[in-house]
Amino acid sequence: MAGVSHSSFADGVEHTVARVRGDLIELSHSIHAEPELAFHEHRSRAKTQALVAERGFEVVPVAGLDTAFRASFGSGDLVVGVCAEYDALPELGHACGHNIIAASAVGAALALAEVADALNLTVVLLGTPAEEAGGGKVLMMEAGAFDDVAAAVMMHPGPVDIAAARSLALSEVNVSYTGKEAHAAVAPFLGVNAADAVTVAQVAVGLLRQHLFPGQMMHGIVTDGGQAPNVVPRHASMRYTMRANDTAALHALEEKMAGCFAAGALATGCQHRVESVSPIYQELTPDPWLSQTFRSEMLRLGRAPVPAELEAALPLGSTDMGNVTQLLPGIHPVVGVEANGASVHQPGFAEAAAGPAGDAAVIDGAIMLARTVVALAETPAERDRVAGLAERRAS
C-alpha cells in the first residue's frame, strides 16, 4: 500500500525545495511574464534549464527541437523523469499555468539531485515544449528521450486537487475547401463557394452531436471564410479538435467527422483536404501506486484532493503526457490553485498563476513530486516493478 514516506531522504528533499523556494518562485514569475507559444519557447527553455545546469545537470538537446532539452544528474540504475512544460496560449498567456509546471519540475529535480547517489537514482529533467499544440512529448518519445526512463512524473495546476488525474484522447485537424471565385452579384452562378462548404460541414457536425458516445466531443473554429463579401470565396478552412475517453473511441469519432467534412465538399462541388495538425494525444492513464502516493502527500500538506471515486468523472481536457503514461508508469496530478472561480484557459487563471496560490502550487508541487519519487526509490517491490517494465521495453 502506498503511503507517506517518513524517511530522512523524504524530509531532505522537502528541505531542499524550501531552501530554493525563492529561485523557484522567481522562475515561475519570469516565465509567466514572457509567455511564448508552442515550439517558440526559447526564453522559457533557457530559464527552466538554468538552475539545474548550475547544479551540475548535463543538459543536451532532444529530437532536433530548439526548445526541448534533457538534463540528467546521477548514475543510478533507477531513472526517473520529471517533465517540465512551459508553452503558453495565444492571447491568454499562461492561463494554463505552465509556468507553475516548469518551476515545480525544476524544484523536484534539484531536490532529487541531493539524494540521487544515496538512493541510486538518475534524475532526468525533461523540457517538453508544445503541449498546448504540437505534441512535444510525442516527438521526444519518438526520438528516444524516454527510452531509459522507468517512471515519469509531473504536476499541472487547476481549480481543484486531483491525485489520479485523467484526460481525454485528442486529435486535431485542419480542413480546407477549394472552390472557384466569382463576382457575388454579377455572376455568382460561375462560382463554387468554399465558405458554403464550411457551413454545410458545420451543420453536419452539429447534427452529429446527438449521436455521440459519452466522452466524445468536438469543437472547432473557422480559420478562413473568404476575404470580401462581393467575391464568392474560392478558399475556406476550419480547424477542429476531436476528443474521446480513449483512443479507440477517438478513431470512431474521426471516421464520423470525416463524413461531415466530406459532406461540405459534396454539397457544394468543392475539393477538400483534411490534414492532421499534431500527433494524436492518447488518454492519460495514471499509475495507481504513484497516484496513491501522491494523494497521501497531498493530504499530508493539508490539501483536499477530490475523492478517488470521483476522479474518473473529471477528465482534464487532453495532454501529450497521456502518451507517456501509455508507454511507462507516470502521473500527472492536478494541484489546486484558487483563482476566484476561474478555471484553466481563462484570464483569471492566468492572473492567479503568478499570484500567491500559484506560488504555493509551485512549492507544494515540487515537494510532493520529489517525495513521491523518494517513496518509489525506497519501496523495493515498486522500484523493481517500474525498473522491470523499463527493461522489457528496452529488449
Rank of each mutant, 00 (worst) to 15 (best):
S7D: 06
E14A: 13
H15R: 15
L24C: 02
I25C: 13
H29T: 03
S30K: 10
P35A: 09
R43H: 10
T48Y: 13
Q49M: 12
Q49Y: 06
A50F: 05
D66N: 10
T67A: 05
H98D: 09
N99M: 05
N99I: 02
A102I: 12
G107M: 04
A109K: 00
L112E: 01
L112Y: 00
A116T: 00
A118P: 09
N120I: 05
L121G: 00
V124K: 07
L126R: 02
A130R: 08
G134S: 09
M140D: 03
M140T: 05
E142A: 15
D147M: 01
H156A: 09
S167R: 04
L168H: 02
A169Y: 11
G179M: 03
L190K: 12
D196A: 11
G206T: 13
L207F: 10
Q210C: 04
G220L: 03
Q227H: 12
P233W: 05
D246T: 02
A248F: 14
A248I: 12
A249G: 14
H251T: 11
K256H: 11
T268Q: 12
P286H: 09
L290I: 06
F294P: 01
R295Y: 07
E297M: 06
E311M: 09
L316C: 14
T319Q: 11
V334N: 10
V334I: 15
E338H: 10
N340C: 02
V344Q: 09
G348A: 08
F349T: 10
A357M: 03
A361R: 06
D364W: 01
A366S: 14
L369R: 00
R371K: 15
T372M: 10
V374M: 03
A375L: 08
L376S: 04
L389K: 07
E391S: 12
R392D: 07
